[in-house]
Amino acid sequence: MVSASKGFLGIVLLSWVVYGCVDLKHVSEFSETSIEAISSYELLPNTFEQVCIQDCEQKHIRDYNVYKTACDCALNKKADSITGLMYTASLEYLTGLLEISNSDLTRYQTDNLTSTLSTGDFGPLQLKEEDVKAYSKVSKLILKVFTDGYRRKKLKEYITEGYEPLQVILHFLKRNINANLSGKLNVQKSSIQAFYFDFVRDKSLSDYERTKFAEDYFNRISEIEMNQKELQLFSEVIDDIAQGHKDLYSNLENLQDEKIKGKLARLRYRLKHAIALFSS
């Protein structure tokens, strides 16, 4: 009788060790910090449409025109929609990762992603097929993952299946912000320089007027460069999230190792630093 009880207790303990002692806190903490960090997208100082409107207004200023000043920024609005879709898809995926790795599983909502996919303003423009597949894959993953109770098993599947599409989405999200949007700001700086150059050199103006023009120029360039730093910071956030997810993917069979815990902790530290900078 005693040995039977001991045997039963042994089985219970073994089950607890195998299934219960799944410490995924480091994964859920990394996911949580990643969600907070990527949400800084909503705090970015510029959008494509906004830069388009600024450029358009600058053109009217250059032409001394305040009549019929409407700006056609429809294409830039689409660029914002597409970039926003990439952000939302990444955010949704990370939220799913948090939910799976968090022991307090709660019901997951995918309304936001579904809504973005169905209502986004993408006009006649086509996303590349591989990217569309990436969004669809992430979306399907989110939907199916909660039907299974084996958290760790599902976590591995989620990370494995999400690895490639997430990397693709993060790559394009980063490129759109740090290369294309920031590129538009580089153009804006060149345009502003061309605008002020002649005024600053114009000897028919007073010294005061010329120095005021120079001052205005430096203020505007400084403001744009501060904004570009934020875009750069956001792209570093994307890099860290992509790296963290890559580390998870590469260590699926040893998620409990101190090495992977250390890697994620270092990335979390960097992400938290970026979050603090965005909040300041």
Binding site: L75, D131, N180
Partner: peptide, 23 residues
């Protein structure tokens, strides 16, 4: 030259936008 410069810059900013929306 100033006008050519401005027109080229206008084209470049449009290219960055198109890069984002087109594949």
């Amino acid at each position: 030259i100033k006008a050519l410069h401005e027109q080229t810059l206008n084209s470049v900013t449009e290219l960055y936008t198109k890069s984002t929306v087109l594949s």
